[in-house]
């Protein structure tokens, strides 16, 4: 089974480092980005299953980043990391396609739990997609005949 790959996006560098270490200790592969642009760059070049995205960031903020991610990489699951005062933003995020949100300050285990859930969801979705595309490849004999006639 494919291993979960997480991208952490937050403006707090130390948080990124420590959380990455913790995730790696639990055997989860994690990448980090300190801003929206950097996150998008990584998504363009690497395979990522779940993005943990801080709502409040300098420069491009979480919601904007979320929209861009969702438009370019619709299959990537995004979990919003939010402070209390930005629950509205979290709601906005959910409306814009985020899978879930986590309230700051969060417990690492809670974070992993939510990420895992999201990953599961994505895996099921991907399986469905694979099945569907496999069906398009497996054509019925009649169709092959019809095509051959042309």
């Amino acid at each position: 089974m494919e291993k979960m790959k997480i991208l952490l996006v937050d403006d707090e560098e130390r948080f990124l480092q420590t959380t990455k270490k913790l995730l790696e200790k639990k055997g989860i592969e994690a990448m980090t980005a300190t801003g929206g642009e950097a996150a998008l760059d990584i998504l363009d070049t690497s395979i990522v299953h779940v993005v943990i995205l801080d709502v409040k960031m300098p420069g491009m903020d979480g919601i904007e980043t979320l929209r861009l991610i969702k438009s370019r990489h619709p299959l990537v699951e995004v979990i919003m990391l939010t402070g209390h005062a930005t629950v509205e933003s979290a709601v906005d995020g959910l409306k814009s396609g985020a899978t879930d949100y986590v309230m700051k300050p969060c417990d690492i285990n809670a974070l992993i739990e939510k990420a895992t859930e999201a990953f599961e969801k994505r895996r099921i979705l991907e399986e469905k997609i694979n099945m569907a595309s496999a069906r398009t490849f497996m054509k019925s004999p009649r169709k092959i005949l019809e095509e051959g006639e042309k």
């Binding site: 420590t18 913790l22 409040k56 930005t86 690492i108």
Partner: peptide, 18 residues
């Protein structure tokens, strides 16, 4: 102020978890 405090708290929590 509480919102700002939450960020360092988040880091401390991550650090202790580590």
């Amino acid at each position: 102020f509480a919102h700002e405090i939450n960020n360092p708290l988040q880091i401390i929590r991550a650090e202790t978890a580590l």
